[in-house]
Design a protein around this nucleic acid. Structure first.
Lengths: 239, 239
DNA sequence: CGATATCTTGATAAGCATCAATGTGAGTGG
DNA sequence: CCACTCACATTGATGCTTATCAAGATATCG
């Protein structure tokens, strides 16, 4: 089910330069690209599974995917949504610590771990770059802990919408149009809520005129100011 | 209120070798130690505050501290408890992203950021080491997201007790004795609960004979097996 | 040994989950 | 091309979990 292809001059032109190479010397960047191949994964298919041997490090080139962890009884926590430029499977562990699943069709750069590890030692500045990227993910994780542990449903959903808008700034024409590629279920598992609560909260925001919903995946932020207030706890609960 | 002292031959002998130096060549380790000074912080005093200019990177040598983030209205999320060997303030940002406060009296190694940054570039293997440490923190953060987003109170508290025991394995004589230096309030803000719920849950575990509580900070795990079951959702809620 | 912060316990209520049913849209095959 | 189907989203009724408010018990420290 999974499509593979080795890298070639053509594919290197087709896709944007590897984010981890940006700013590195050309010869070095070429060396990194030399060990990379690319892989496409269809929407709703897994890239890898929690517990699998962590044979590869990936970088998202196109599309969006989600990372999640499971409890024995099936409860799920989505730990992040990854857009192009993000790395996954970097943790230096024998096995993957979470499952990665494509939300849309996804294109990835794949680096075999053994070769990637060698690159880290041999390419000056690469380890530092990866450190910066990981610190950034850690910061995001800490923000998410604050959200999960201390925010009410309205604040969570408002924060999520603003984060999505932020993430898509400069993509579409309208700054207030947000495209939501993931299902309500995924949003819920990301925010520590249920599908129903996410849906209800969105409906409520729509009724208040804060957002508009033409299709479930197309949201327009009508009142960013109000949304920011809600994200900071201006809506009764917990405030 | 804060005690400062420059590093000296004596203090280098007094404290365990810097964790970030472990395994590095002696000359290199000495070079890292040369830019470090140490700092002690009394219990309940701040090491640094969210938003302060991030002038230093620290490493915990002795004692325990907590990291937390605040919402505008005062709600608090403790993102981690740090024991010796852990780094803080590493994120490459102009300002600290969280507040660090001593729980017990704490001793820290302090590295001025400018010099620390230079070391990262110049000491081979250091960036890689820091990368590994940060990946580990990220893993812990993802585990905590699962806890905050998807576990009930009993599971949270049980998980916390087991993690504390794990962390202290090999310290005291009895493997089942857990010393809890932080207040109920801090535990609550770490687990996304209230002080009252933490207290009630502990009382309940005590009544069931799963733990015993002589003083609030001294807990003995009487039935680790049962505790593990509870941590995995064997207690009605959410299961 | 007394004062104060911390912890524990109790009663009540809010917020969100759960269970159940209906609505809606994308994709499929006749 | 259209009806059909199925997955997904929405809406509603109810109950559980945990927060909140309030008071009392227990530790810790000067």
């Amino acid at each position: 089910m999974l499509a593979f292809a080795t890298s070639s001059a053509v594919t290197r032109i087709d896709f944007p330069a590897l984010a981890i190479c940006r700013g590195l010397e050309k010869t070095v960047a070429a060396r990194i690209a030399a060990v990379a191949s690319y892989r496409t994964v269809a929407a709703s298919k897994m890239v890898f599974c929690e517990g699998d041997p962590s044979d590869n490090v990936y970088e998202v080139v196109r599309g969006m995917l989600k990372l999640f962890k499971l409890l024995p009884d099936g409860r799920r926590q989505v730990t992040g949504f990854l857009s192009p430029g993000h790395l996954l499977g970097l943790a230096h562990d024998e096995r993957y610590l979470y499952t990665a699943e494509a939300i849309t069709d996804v294109t990835l750069w794949r680096y075999p771990r053994t070769q990637f590890d060698r690159l880290i030692d041999e390419v000056p500045g690469l380890a530092r770059r990866l450190l910066a990227a990981t610190c950034d993910e850690l910061r995001a994780a800490q923000d998410q802990m604050l959200l999960l542990g201390r925010m009410g449903a309205a604040e969570k959903v408002a924060s999520f919408l603003l984060a999505m808008a932020e993430c898509q700034a400069g993509e579409s024409g309208d700054e207030d149009e947000v495209h939501v590629p993931m299902a309500r279920n995924d949003i819920a598992d990301y925010l520590g809520l249920t599908t129903e609560t996410v849906s209800r909260t969105l409906t409520h925001l729509k009724r208040e005129g804060v957002i508009s919903l033409s299709t479930p995946s197309h949201i327009v932020l009508q009142d960013r100011e109000r949304l920011s207030q809600l994200a900071e706890g201006d809506g009764a609960a917990h405030a």
